[in-house]
Design a protein around this nucleic acid. Structure first.
Length: 441
RNA sequence: GGAGAGGUGGCAGAGUGGUCGAAUGCACCGCACUCGAAAUGCGGCGUGGGGGCAACUCCACCGGGGGUUCGAAUCCCUCCCUCUCCGCCA
């Protein structure tokens, strides 16, 4: 949620900044007009309320003095205000709802350094603050070479008899997978390894959050009101709960409706959870394999910071995610998303794309975003700074990383010509020392 | 799921229809005393919004929503949550 006062002060910047973002339904002048109506309505109703309060106070005094005649006269007078107040309040609510509803579907303003562009073809490769293609090549795992034609993960998995889409379809339909045996264990190992890494080496607090959340929480992290069709809901009492599409939802909402003190920041949380997405708009995309599923596991990182610290925290979070891929020996690149490719709530997003030799391409395996105070305004998450001033926090979130996609990357990068898959060094202790997953395992 | 009790400021805890945004204590901030600190004394100390250059002023908020009333923290309805007991249960 953007600040209407900021829009009022910077209408041209608002219109210019959101030009590159998709589906921005309002101009600054429209929003400013809504705000004018809102404030007019507030002024009207508050004037009537002030009058009513003053008269009511006099009634109390008159009654205390046993002056019933005067009390009655005042009561008659104030009774006439009642309709005006009720009507005024309705007008006010309508005006406020209209403005809030409009602001709720307006995406965040990209930071200046974000490349302007229409879609992912305008994304720009990123090598770090002081990085270059050379330093990146030196510091990241190299792209593997193969003496045979590498297979896609589902070919390998099905040949191993440990990845089963048919059984999954029987049980749950399309976009589900069943993992078995050592591949199931490898999936578990990857998740445990990543979670441990963020907790032990990167300073995050491990969290086991609820997987079912309320609409309010979804609103706070931007899934509602605009992206309802991407979610799974279950009925609950008179209402409903949603299955989390990402642990970002429960973790970020930790700070909803609260005023933190500055020395509690930064707050760094991580969780390994299943994620549930209906993938409503992606019919026909990535239908083969387990790249795009209705359910997958993911390790999520969330950070809550001061406005001053969020930029640096974003770089840290990126490097925390990169560390996972480095330790797993997976070749990757980092893309800074263009304005047209960024998510709704982001000010700036880095995507980590792992090299998938079976697909002969890079695929997104992590997305790390800084949201500024956009979510904080929606959640009313604030902190008291050193001078006692209350300000909105900044929020960041990033995958660290998607477990299912990491499994794909491991399977494709560590595959052998005989169809077996080597276990990366970092995972062997999680696999009881197992070094290779073969057909007989 | 049933019965009962409760939800008030950072915390504890008064307040059952009018001058209550709310006593008191703790915590916190400033000042005085002190070499310094403690103790003590004095003062300050909620959030959001409207108006105003400002001083300031008005409105709303006592779990959420709705209602009664000239007037609601206080009365009524409803929902949520917490606690105790019972039932069920991984």
């Amino acid at each position: 949620m953007l600040d209407i006062n900021w829009i009022k002060a910077n209408p041209a910047a608002f219109d210019a900044a959101l030009k590159e973002r998709k589906n921005v339904p309002f101009t600054a002048s429209q929003l400013i007009e809504m705000d004018e109506s809102r404030r007019t309505a507030i002024a009207a109703v508050e004037e009537a309320q002030a009058k009513r309060n003053a008269l009511s106070k006099q009634i109390g005094q008159a009654k205390a003095q046993k002056d019933e005649a005067r009390a009655q006269a005042l009561m008659d007078e104030v009774a006439q205000l009642k309709d005006a107040i009720q009507a005024g309040e309705a007008t006010r609510k309508e005006a406020e709802d209209k403005l809030r509803g409009a602001l709720a579907i307006i995406p965040n303003i990209p930071l200046d350094e974000v490349p302007r562009g229409a879609d992912e073809s305008d994304n720009v490769e990123y090598f770090g603050r002081n990085g270059s293609p050379e330093t990146a090549a030196k510091n990241r795992p190299a792209r593997p070479t193969f003496s045979f034609k590498p297979k896609e993960h589902f070919e390998t998995g099905e040949a191993l008899g440990q990845m089963d889409f048919e059984v999954a379809a029987k049980i749950s339909g399309s976009r589900f997978v069943v993992l078995k045996s050592h591949l199931a264990r490898l999936e578990r190992a990857i998740g445990q390894f990543m979670l441990d890494l963020h907790v032990d080496a990167h300073g995050y607090t491990e969290v086991e959050p609820p997987y079912l959340v309320k609409d309010d929480a979804l609103y706070g992290t931007n899934q509602l009101p605009k992206f309802e069709e991407d979610l799974f809901f279950v009925p609950h009492g008179e209402g409903r709960l949603a299955l989390i599409p990402t642990a970002e939802v429960p973790l970020t909402n930790f700070v909803r409706d609260s005023i933190l003190s500055e020395d509690e920041l930064p707050l760094r949380l991580t969780a390994l959870t299943p994620c549930f997405r209906s993938e409503a708009g992606s019919a026909g995309r990535d239908t083969r394999g387990m790249l795009r599923q209705h359910q997958f596991n993911k390790v999520e990182m969330v950070a809550i910071t001061t406005p001053e610290a969020s930029g640096e925290e974003h770089e840290k979070m990126l490097s925390d995610a990169e560390d996972v891929l480095k330790q797993l020996g997976l070749h990757y690149r980092v893309m800074m998303l263009s304005t047209g490719d960024m998510g709704f709530g982001a000010q700036k997003t880095y995507d980590l794309e792992a090299w998938l030799p079976g697909q002969d391409t890079y695929r997104e395996i992590s997305s790390v975003s800084v949201c500024g105070d956009f979510q904080a305004r929606r959640m009313d998450a604030r902190y008291r700074d050193k001078d006692g001033k209350i300000r909105h926090v900044h929020t960041l979130n990033g995958s660290g990383v998607a477990v299912g996609r990491a499994l794909i990357a491991v399977m494709e990068n560590y595959q052998q010509e005989d169809g077996s898959v080597l276990v990366p060094d970092a995972l062997q202790s999680y696999m009881k020392g197992l070094k290779s997953i073969g057909a007989r395992s």
